[in-house]
Amino acid sequence: MHPIRRQRLGVVLFVVLFSSLAVGLVMYAMRGNINLFYPPSEVEAGIAPIGKPIRVGGMVEEESFRRNIDSLLVRFVITDFQSSLEVLYEGILPDLFGEGQGVVALGVLDSNGRFIASEVLAKHDENYMPPEVADSLKLSDKTSIGY
């Protein structure tokens, strides 16, 4: 290879390596902020700030969902299978919301350790199958894979 071209190849590799390194360090420094939400175990550990708008995410615990009779207020518990967190929300839930399903909620932690949500989003998992297959796997209403 011609020496000038070899030098240019060196410059190209340098650009790729050092920009990767720079971006890698930036992401390492910002690792907490890139996460979209806190799982309940981090809330319990006190990592999540109280009284500030944050997102929490986890799986809606089985048989934890309660609906108020005369308002849109709902209450459910989310879990990451290590600890759990009670969520209160007043509003319309997305279609895919359900017990055993993943959710991400935006809101604030109150001093009683409850989460007052202003927005609840359903987190879809990576599994796709026709209803018949799901029936045969007994998954049609709930799934235990991921959250």
Partner: peptide
């Protein structure tokens, strides 16, 4: 050069759902 610097982003996009908590589901 801009194109080369941007290649850093490709593995980040690919692994983003595994490295961080995100709303987007992991790869199927």
């Amino acid at each position: 050069i801009l194109g080369l610097v941007g290649t850093v982003n490709i593995p980040i996009i690919y692994k983003s759902v595994d490295w961080w908590y995100s709303l987007h589901q992991p790869a199927s």
